[in-house]
Amino acid sequence: MGTLLEVKNLKFVTEDGIEILKGVNLDVKKGEIHVLLGPNGAGKSTLANVVAGASGYENPTEGEVVFDGIVLNGKPIYERARLGLTIAFQEPARFEGITVEEYLKLSARNNPDADIEACLKKVGLEPCDYLHRFVDDSLSGGERKRVELASIMCMKPKLAVLDEIDSGIDFVSIDEIGNLFKTMRDEGTTLLVITHRENIAKIADRASLICDGKIVETGDPSKIIEKFEKECLTCTVQNPELLKELKFNK
């Protein structure tokens, strides 16, 4: 499998001077589910935003984001989407007056073959119950995320970055989502899945562990999960609350 996304020595420093990404190197191969695992504050969402070109993240402080052979630095999010790279945000926005059907049609506007009803069914939502609903506060958090996944399926991008799309969805359906990711991959979308849930990481083809703004290891998901459990969950660098607790116990 060739490389679809290559992140080279990526650094990102905020306007306040906080260095969040400290030289990230990552490659995502065409046709794989690549899980990015890491504790809170490790830089997962920042990396997702820089890769997708979210507002304020289009230009990394240093390094390059290369997608399908094209350097993306400086390109806005919609241009990247048109090249076939999209993102599902951790908290996708809600919209007054826009129905699920319209939202999915907007997503599918560059994919005339999209079957929006089939996409909805794949995420476990019955079209007759949801197409006419508004993508507003009347949807639960879980429903909204399912609609977002359906919208990505309608787009059928080359690469989808899914930023904690599994959070807020009940545990029973985590397995369903894992199967859904496999379906998306089998239909031609490479996935970069950001999560801190090990059971999501299990379904990956490869995984990377991010810690303190750097990728510390990439490889077999089971090994990465093991490392995550052993080192990250007890790490005081990424978990200052734990550090306080340890000091208190001493």
Partner: peptide
């Protein structure tokens, strides 16, 4: 809302 715009722009708008 910036988040609304970005969610749609991520679809290519």
């Amino acid at each position: 809302d910036k988040k609304q715009l970005e969610t749609l722009m991520a679809k290519g708008l």
